[in-house]
Write a protein that binds this DNA or RNA. Structure first.
Lengths: 72, 72
DNA sequence: ATAAATTTATCGAAAAACAATAAATTTATA
DNA sequence: TATAAATTTATTGTTTTTCGATAAATTTAT
């Protein structure tokens, strides 16, 4: 499972969703969807813009969480 | 700029593109496009499958490279 | 040279981003 | 607690892009 977590970096940068959406260049509504893990894909241009806006690495905001099961 | 790099992990797992495409469940052609940074977006389901197939983290295969310029 | 692996190219279909907008909900604050 | 601000959710339409299927071209290995 892929998890998006913008909260930590947003807090660190003291940035609101509104501010972030402006910096990133996508609408508040769509950024909210992304933030709440309702999106099913992402354009690299968007991911790039987010990393840039939050001045962070990819791993600061997107994580792969293996589903527990076989081979723990 | 967002960079996809599958080579390192593929080497580590001694896995060919062909094998990976089968494990991931997308065609060889499309995986090649992704591997060579020709894709403009990615579905989380695909990213998830790749991390699973290569047993690695997101940051092992996708990286944000800030463009040098202002504020170095 | 031959085979295997990978890349590139088409085409079409399905999926999904994203904009624009508005309403609902949650959270903060005076 | 009333009000405002921030965030989430919903809807509709457009556009973009994935991805499958397939084949050809190219590169790499044997």
């Amino acid at each position: 499972m892929i998890i998006i977590n913008l909260d930590v970096m947003m807090a660190k940068r003291k940035m609101s969703l509104n501010q972030l959406s402006e910096k990133v260049g996508i609408t508040l509504a769509n950024l909210s969807i992304l933030k709440n893990n309702k999106a099913k894909a992402i354009r690299f241009s968007t991911l790039d813009a987010i990393c840039k806006a939050l001045d962070c690495r990819v791993e600061d905001i997107v994580e792969y969480v293996p589903d527990e099961k076989e081979g723990i």
